[in-house]
Design a protein around this nucleic acid. Structure first.
Lengths: 162, 162
DNA sequence: TATTGTTATACTCTATAACTATA
DNA sequence: TATAGTTATAGAGTATAACAATA
């Protein structure tokens, strides 16, 4: 597998001893959520690797929707990295024929990055894989799915999800 | 912030258009889960950055529990990367005085990586930050927390979480 | 023969700083 | 002056391949 690695996985690993302690319902719920989280991260990186894309490249591609494209600095903002990184990432995507740079018409400092036909294909193939709800959730009864959604809605509403 | 970046964030970003479609309860639940996931990833990388650790270094440190230490190849397995990467990661942790290498006594090919006193301090400080249940979940009623735990338990049991 | 860890190599990502062009 | 993007530089992670030591 091309690009699965320590840095990507690290954030999803729980500390060994945290598995042994007695827990509240919230703790247990969170531990279970982290398992889902782990599986999902893994799925993203494996999917990116299937298309021979570095995670940063795959993430960029996923941000590029139909339309006139995204300014370089907008990509940098969404990926939470410096403008200068985007230059390199887009360079490599462009070299593979997946995206194009197009100069802005109004503000000529801006360059818009847009998908090529080939890029659109790759993006859609990735998206359709990633859009799938994990089997663990899909296999729940409809009632449980609703329950889960409602509880999480309340969590998102009251707490600070960000 | 030292090390928050495209590759790390990419896997947690949802595709733009996926937000607009009509959804089943399972889809909505999954979308909400991804928000929590996003926040948690962010927390991990920010915490690592606070201690001036690269995510891979922080992840390694978190795997090192008390005791005789972990063989290099065991770390590689847990981090899902090649042995040769661990050499470099441990080199840098060792240079900062956070871990030590110790030759195996039985099998002399193996080297055991263990925390120093300093490494233990850093690890505990990180662990105590990361162990906290996200505010979004903690703010739920006890009943909701139990509900969440129970539904997720069923999900983990029936579906394939990995 | 197989495994453990290292070294060598090449590529990607990342941040910072300096630069150009534009606003 | 400020912003968008590039280039230059340095450092870290990553995979592959080749290697020495050990099993």
């Amino acid at each position: 597998m091309g690009r699965m690695a320590a840095a990507e996985m690290a954030g999803t690993l729980s500390a060994p001893e945290s598995r042994a302690r007695p827990r509240s319902a919230g703790d247990e719920a969170w531990a279970l959520l982290r398992e889902l989280l782990f599986a999902e991260r893994r799925r993203f990186f494996e999917t990116a690797a299937e298309f021979e894309l570095h995670p940063a490249q795959a993430g960029t591609l996923m941000q590029l929707d139909e339309g006139p494209g995204l300014p370089m600095h907008e990509i940098a903002t969404r990926l939470a990295c410096d403008n200068s990184n985007v230059t390199g990432i887009v360079d490599r995507l462009e070299a593979r024929g997946l995206v194009t740079r197009r100069g802005g018409e109004q503000d000529r400092r801006v360059k818009y990055v847009a998908l090529t036909a080939s890029g659109r294909e790759v993006r859609e193939a990735m998206a359709s894989k990633l859009a799938r709800v994990p089997a663990a959730i899909e296999s729940l009864s409809l009632e449980d799915q609703r329950l889960l959604r409602d509880v999480l809605s309340r969590a998102a509403g009251t707490g600070s999800p960000a």
